[in-house]
Simulated scan of single mutants.
Amino acid sequence: MSDVPHLLIPFAASPSPGCQQTLKELPLPHLNRLLARMTLAGTDVGEETDFAPPHERALARALGLPTAKNGITPWAAWQQRHLRGEAIRSKAWAYITPCQWHVSTDHVTMLDPADLQLTPFSSRALMDLLAPWFADDGIELIYDEPMRWIASGDVFEGVSAASLDRVIQRDVRSWMPLADNAEHTRAIHRLQSEMQMLLYTHPLNDARAEEGLPPVNTFWMHGAGRLATVPSASAAPLVPSGLRDAALREDWKQWAAQWRELDAGAVAEIEHHVAAGGKARLTLCGECSSMQFETAERGFGQKLKSLFSRPQRFLDLQNKL
């Protein structure tokens, strides 16, 4: 089924009371018609405390990528496979995202890194400033994009690093990186503390304040690990990102608007494809779990049964996500 279209929807639902109320008043006609034509093929039941959210675990499975404990996938290594070739197997890799932690009496909250508004120029300047401290721990930094750098080093071997989507707007103390090697854990935590001390009074942040921009005071590591085996190429699912920002900010009005747009767009396309006799996959991902649906050939008995059974609707399924 490698040529079968696959729509993978992150943040399709949330246990938040605001989301639950919004869903009761959210018509998703194309999604409901699509679900009525599909069969549940599998579920991935997880916990809200898992370092990897359901949509990352589902994407890893679709791409044939390995997952370690906590569902962690070496995303940085996988991204580098075309640029580094076989060299990626000899190193452990990670993503580094500059960020701002807001420290209060009883919380250390990760604010949305997008609010930093880093440009390619300012991000490179920041990376060049921090690179010597990373180098002291044997870590090489490589610029990738304003909100994400690539890092390589032995310290990322065997590390469980929580996804960025898990920590935004949350207390980071529950999500700090852990490594099989205690020295690696201490090195990462120490480096985060050193960057906080370095940036706290650095002129770089004084200049940002004059421009009305929030300070950068540390970094988050994610997508870490070694990719020992590169999977064969497989078709990547379509992963719409419109629901993400609204869900992370718990802006359920905007989230509903994004869902309506998605239902009238990508979901409608898949629904029309299936209605015309085509095959497709649909993966709905929530805060803890995901559900994958597929079209399948149905015998006469199954077709007869479906005539008398209530079609599955998203509202009935969302509590399982």
Results as ranks from 00 to 15, higher is better:
residue 2 S to Y: 02
residue 14 S to A: 12
residue 18 G to Q: 06
residue 22 T to N: 03
residue 27 P to G: 03
residue 28 L to Y: 03
residue 37 R to I: 00
residue 37 R to L: 14
residue 39 T to Y: 00
residue 43 T to Q: 15
residue 45 V to C: 13
residue 47 E to K: 13
residue 48 E to L: 12
residue 50 D to P: 00
residue 51 F to R: 15
residue 57 R to V: 06
residue 81 R to W: 06
residue 89 R to A: 12
residue 95 Y to L: 11
residue 95 Y to T: 12
residue 115 D to K: 14
residue 116 L to M: 06
residue 119 T to F: 10
residue 121 F to M: 08
residue 125 A to M: 04
residue 126 L to I: 08
residue 134 F to V: 05
residue 136 D to A: 11
residue 139 I to R: 08
residue 142 I to V: 14
residue 149 W to M: 13
residue 152 S to T: 15
residue 154 D to M: 08
residue 155 V to S: 03
residue 158 G to Y: 05
residue 165 D to K: 13
residue 171 D to V: 02
residue 176 M to R: 08
residue 177 P to C: 02
residue 181 N to S: 10
residue 182 A to G: 07
residue 187 A to D: 07
residue 189 H to P: 00
residue 192 Q to V: 01
residue 200 Y to S: 11
residue 200 Y to T: 07
residue 203 P to L: 09
residue 209 A to W: 00
residue 210 E to H: 02
residue 215 P to Q: 02
residue 216 V to L: 09
residue 223 G to M: 11
residue 226 R to M: 11
residue 232 S to H: 14
residue 234 S to F: 08
residue 244 R to F: 03
residue 247 A to Q: 09
residue 254 Q to E: 09
residue 257 A to I: 00
residue 258 Q to C: 08
residue 260 R to M: 07
residue 260 R to K: 14
residue 279 K to H: 11
residue 284 L to W: 11
residue 288 C to F: 07
residue 293 F to V: 04
residue 293 F to C: 03
residue 296 A to R: 14
residue 297 E to F: 11
residue 303 K to T: 07
residue 305 K to V: 01
residue 307 L to E: 02
residue 316 D to W: 02
residue 320 K to H: 15
